[in-house]
Write a protein that binds this DNA or RNA. Sequence first.
DNA 1: CTGAAAGCGCTTACAG
DNA 2: CTGAAAGCGCTTACAG
Lengths: 336, 336
Amino acid sequence: MPITIYDIAKAAGVSIATVSRVFNQAENVKPQTRKKVLKIADEMGYHPHVYAQGLASKKKNRIVMLAPVMSNYFFTEVLRGIQDSLAEEHFELNIVNIGRKKDAFKLVEETIKKRWAEGYLLVSLHFSEKELKLLKRHNIPVCLVDDFSNSFDSVSFNNEEGAYLATKYLISKGNRQIAVLSANANSIPIRDRLKGYRRALDEFEIPYDENLIITGDSMERDGFTELSGYQAMNKILNLDPIPDAVFCTSDTKAVGAQKALKEHGVHLPLISFDNLTIAEYIGLSTVNQPMYDMGFRATNKLIQRLHNPDLRISNEVHHPELVIRSSSEKLKEVTS
Amino acid sequence: MPITIYDIAKAAGVSIATVSRVFNQAENVKPQTRKKVLKIADEMGYHPHVYAQGLASKKKNRIVMLAPVMSNYFFTEVLRGIQDSLAEEHFELNIVNIGRKKDAFKLVEETIKKRWAEGYLLVSLHFSEKELKLLKRHNIPVCLVDDFSNSFDSVSFNNEEGAYLATKYLISKGNRQIAVLSANANSIPIRDRLKGYRRALDEFEIPYDENLIITGDSMERDGFTELSGYQAMNKILNLDPIPDAVFCTSDTKAVGAQKALKEHGVHLPLISFDNLTIAEYIGLSTVNQPMYDMGFRATNKLIQRLHNPDLRISNEVHHPELVIRSSSEKLKEVTS
DNA sequence: CTGAAAGCGCTTACAG
DNA sequence: CTGAAAGCGCTTACAG
């Protein structure tokens, strides 16, 4: 039913090879012929069938992005970076939602096996080195985003350092008892951020107190939600004594935490993590994570590898930057 | 280089037809044969080539979502609905970013012509009936999300009604001078929302004053950004007299607007639009828009049409619901 | 500058 | 339950 290259060739009185050349920007077609083919193709509403093209040419001009969760701001910014980077190249983007299931790895492997794309971007998927080795044997270009490995190119973020900076800042302002608004303790970013927190404590010889590591009850999205932040902050406010300050592991959680603070009429100096757009508008002190850049850079890296498969593996680590706004201030002395 | 169906057939001592049957869940394969093929395929790391499958079978099991902007919460929620709906079916999702360019329509048409997918979801793309007619002639299943047309199935939202409800509520609380924090005046949602605003004014015989329709200077994302809301609210606060209340055309803008209010130490009753997750946490009174549901329902509708192309065109309109929180309160009387 | 022909990796009647 | 063969709609040396 749909128009094929044969229909166009017949209507234009040329061979299908010529039609194909016209659509592949080949230079060696008589301008007159080209014009005629284009005209007829336009009239008949023809467009090459991508699957047939892909099969015959063995080119796909497509990269696939795999991610565990799509509906959060982090993902959204990374995606924006990817798309902006791709816009300059001749590639299409495919997005596959992996979800948080146990068999995430299987799903990723299945997807890669299907060979839809020439390259794959694995975002926030923290597989073991063993699993990554399994992926490696499919011998396909992959770049990790927000993860690190020796087996593949990667663009990641120094979470440990970010938490260290935030905690150190709070300490430098005279806070000693610093609670952590944490999330799923098994998630890699949380593990790294807790390490940074401890390093700062150690440096100032403040004893580590595990009772100050507080997690909300909701574990949706690994606990990186407003609700979970709200729950956790309520727990913190029930601590006795109430800690001096809070290191919050994400801006999203901080939004929930601030609601709890407001309801209790309490202020606690707080620094969070990510620097989402909203942070600026609600006065959140936070650790800036260049999500957009990470997506952009990772895509560049992947495309480079497509062009040159023998490139040495390269790991790019982005560094944190502390952005201080009002949430980290101590309460102003109230002169009564 | 990659393993093909021939390699598996040879290794298993069967024909490629049999291998194909095994991978297509055909029932008529001897269990023994099936097991053997599966084992060998697994060992050799084989997976059917999707392009070849698509070409030979003329099935794609793929739907494409086309959207103008991806990095905002609205899109993100719609996407979540789409994915949840798709998860139950046997379809893959492809996302194509159309951007805000002039030639958005051309891009959409190009994409549809490529015939990647059996069905297309057009999200927040407001084309004219004339343009939609052009799309129609490609004779392909399409469902519009956040838009309405007689030519295609659609799932949309009653923006006019939402603005009407919000404005009416503000009036009912005794506010007369109600400013609008607006955005790109040419965007369809803004046009509809302004209509609803006027209808409420008319009903209460409040004269319409175009000086109360305020837009920020930044027109990124049609002005639906925190920055734009911040700018617009600053303008409103310079009005003389300051209006009684504000109808804000999106939660995102409201976040910016609240910052401006805070900086000026002023409170103005405010209702906004969308009911993003964050609205609950910052006490925003707002018009709930069921974004997730709209994505979910639209996908269902599209898949139904795939199964049954002769279905009558169906337009589903979702209705607004006012969610009142603290931002719309009048300032409490200060007893001094 | 153009065409005939082989081939890309599958599916699917058709026949047995 | 299985195989031989045609066909899906293209691209691309190869030859002219």
